[in-house]
Design a binder for these strands. Structure first.
Length: 277
DNA sequence: CTTTTTCCCTGGACGC
DNA sequence: TGCGTCCAGGGAAAAA
């Protein structure tokens, strides 16, 4: 599932590949993955931005597209040649059964929106800056963009579990199930604890831990345990170093105790009974 | 305002 | 082998 590190990985790749590029057409193969009016004109791309798990591709005209990959979405670039990279283009997304939207670029390249479960979408908007601002204002800050004290105040206002709280994009943005699980383990905090029961020192430790696991995700190109792939169809590396996520019955990295899978807020949750009490 | 519930989807896992 | 059932899960929207 694409979370902040995965989306940021794609954003960086898009920004590099689409600099000075233009879109000359969009073919919608499944309208459930596309919102907004259809259009056919040349749109020069001027920026690719991200807030939380949302992507914004901004056009010179002021228009743009908002993208959310949700659970299984991928943005895949088919290059005319791939001599600049060692990554083989083994998959042809032109004919892939789950390719939902095809974006044609002015130089002949194509960007494919691929999504099996179709929770994600591309949304075309007339005023991308206003749309970006609107989304951003509805999101909480990313873990490195607020102080320990600010986080503590936010957490004190809710009676939900700490895990549900940090997964709430209105409270904190960018953190999904993978990094929430690993961050809580790194901080030594039980995900079932009430958010407003955390001590000052625990809030600081949690924020620090979330920053750490997100940075690690960024450094490894994200987690490809499931369907996530980067812009070139490649895998990230974070799935090879999950701290607890998905590791049912495997030993805790700190104490060796078998990790357990529980359910918190309806989401799969992995804990070490000894290290997270 | 806060919290809960429902819904959107399909591939893969599982049971018989 | 094959069929039916269950489950994963981000976020919008409605309901409580």
């Amino acid at each position: 599932m694409p979370e902040l590190p995965e989306v940021e990985t794609v954003r960086k790749q898009l920004a590099q590949e689409l600099a000075d590029a233009s879109i000359v057409g969009i073919v919608v193969r499944d309208s459930r993955c596309y919102e907004g009016l259809a259009w056919s004109r040349v749109e020069k791309i001027v920026a690719v931005a991200r807030s939380g798990k949302y992507l914004f591709v901004k056009f010179e005209s002021g228009r743009g597209i908002q993208v959310h990959l949700k659970m299984t979405g991928r943005l895949i670039l088919n290059k005319l040649t791939d001599q600049q990279t060692n990554i083989p283009t083994e998959l042809d997304y032109e004919f892939a059964p789950h390719t939902r939207v095809v974006i044609a670029l002015g130089d002949g390249r194509k960007v494919y929106y691929w999504d099996t479960r179709m929770f994600g979408y591309i949304k075309h908007v007339e005023d991308i800056e206003t749309q970006h601002a609107k989304i951003k204002s509805s999101l909480g800050p990313e873990p490195w963009d607020l102080s320990d004290n600010d986080l503590r105040h936010k957490l004190q206002r809710t009676a939900r579990s700490i895990k549900e709280a940090i997964l709430d994009q209105h409270l904190l943005s960018g953190v999904g199930n993978i990094y929430a699980n690993d961050g809580l383990w790194l901080a030594g905090i039980d995900p079932r604890r009430k958010a407003n029961s955390l001590k000052v020192s625990e809030v600081a430790k949690l924020r620090q831990s979330l920053c750490e696991v997100l940075q690690r995700g960024l450094a490894t190109g994200g987690a490809s345990d499931n369907t996530y792939r980067d812009l070139y169809g490649g895998r990230g590396g974070y799935q090879n170093e999950f701290l607890v996520y998905g590791r049912t019955d495997e030993p805790c990295n700190k104490c060796g105790t078998a990790l357990k899978r529980i359910v918190v807020g309806g989401r799969g949750t992995w804990v070490c009974d000894l290290c997270q009490s």
